[in-house]
Amino acid sequence: MAWIKRTWKAHEADEWTKEDWFAIILSPLSFILITFGLALSLFGLTSGFIMLVAGVIVTALMFWIIDPKLNAISSDYESKQHEYLKDLENIQKWENK
């Protein structure tokens, strides 16, 4: 799936891209499929098993897409976090209005 980007530079990962939108769409779908898939599966209903398996596949696909991007965002942001925290404490103490 070459159209899914899995190698990110920090400044690219900061932008909202199609990978984010895939995760945004797949995530609710995964929740709905798992909720009803599991509930119906516990009654031994075939429709439940189908929904549950679909839910697991959708979840795995979502993480496969979003995980590399989150890694890039996280590692870049942590390097600046200390400075941002200092700024936050200034606002807390009315020093940076």
């Binding site: 929740f31 909720t35 898939g37 509930a39 009654f43 979840t59 890694n71």
Partner: peptide, 26 residues
């Protein structure tokens, strides 16, 4: 600890909630 850890904690915490609900149904 990180942005990624925050995102994962929210997703997996809520996933556990919906799984709990499904188990409660029966």
């Amino acid at each position: 600890k990180t942005v990624k850890a925050a995102a994962y904690s929210i997703w997996w915490g809520a996933a556990a909630v919906i799984v709990r609900n499904s188990i409660w149904v029966i």
